[in-house]
C-alpha cells in the first residue's frame, strides 16, 4: 500500500497536469476561436475594403474618362477655333492682297502720271527758259561765244606760262589738253 498512494499521487498529478493542459487547451481554443473570429472579422473588413476599392477604381475610371472626354472636347473646340481663325486669316490675306494689288496699280498709275506731268512741266520750264534765253541772246550769239572763248583763252594763256616748268611727258599731256579745249571751241564756233 505504501506504493498505491504514490501511484495515486502520480495519477492525481497527472490528472492535474492533464487538467491544466486541458484548461490550457480550452483557453487556447478560446483564443483560437477569438482569433478565428478576428480573422473572420478581418476578412469581412477586407472584403469591404476590396469592395470600396473596386468602387473607388470604378469612380476613378469614370472620372478619368470624363476628364479625357472634356479635354478632347476642348481640344476639338480649340482646333475648330484655330481652323476658323486660319480660314479667316487666309480670307483676310487674300482680300488684303487684292487691295494691295489695287493700291500698287494705283501707285503705278500715279507714278506714270507724275512722270508724264513732271516731264511736261520740265519741258514747259525748259522751253520757256530757252525762249527767254533765246530772246535775250537773239542776235548776240556770236558776241556771247566770243566772251566765253575769251575767258577760256585767258585760262589757256595762264596755263601756257606754266608749260616751261613741266617735264616732257607732263608738257605733252597739258599741251594736248589745251589743244583739245581749242578744238572743242573751234567746233562750236565753226558749226
Amino acid at each position: 500500500m505504501k506504493n498505491v498512494p504514490k501511484t495515486l499521487h502520480n495519477l492525481a498529478d497527472q490528472y492535474e497536469k492533464t487538467m491544466s493542459k486541458m484548461n490550457l487547451v480550452k483557453s487556447n481554443n478560446k483564443a483560437i476561436q477569438n482569433l478565428m473570429e478576428q480573422v473572420s472579422n478581418l476578412e469581412g473588413e477586407m472584403k469591404f475594403v476590396k469592395q470600396e476599392m473596386t468602387s473607388l477604381r470604378g469612380d476613378l475610371l469614370s472620372s478619368q474618362e470624363r476628364i479625357e472626354q472634356t479635354i478632347r472636347t476642348q481640344e476639338e473646340i480649340i482646333m475648330d477655333m484655330i481652323n476658323k481663325f486660319n480660314e479667316e486669316l487666309l480670307q483676310h490675306k487674300s482680300s488684303m492682297k487684292e487691295d494691295i494689288e489695287i493700291l500698287k496699280t494705283q501707285q503705278d498709275v500715279l507714278k506714270i502720271s507724275y512722270t508724264i506731268n513732271e516731264k511736261k512741266f520740265m519741258d514747259k520750264v525748259n522751253s520757256s527758259i530757252s525762249r527767254i534765253i533765246n530772246k535775250q541772246v537773239e542776235g548776240k550769239e556770236n558776241e556771247i561765244l566770243m566772251k566765253i572763248w575769251m575767258s577760256e583763252f585767258k585760262e589757256i594763256i595762264r596755263d601756257f606760262e606754266k608749260l616751261k616748268k613741266f617735264r616732257p611727258k607732263e608738257f605733252s599731256v597739258r599741251l594736248n589738253e589745251i589743244s583739245d579745249i581749242i578744238d572743242i571751241f573751234k567746233q562750236k564756233i565753226l558749226s
Binding site: N142, M146, S179, K186, I189
Partner: peptide, 10 residues
C-alpha cells in the same frame, strides 16, 4: 576774223 584767228591759234 574771230573764227580765222581761232583756227590760227589751233
Amino acid at each position: 576774223a574771230f573764227k580765222n584767228n581761232l583756227v590760227a591759234i589751233s
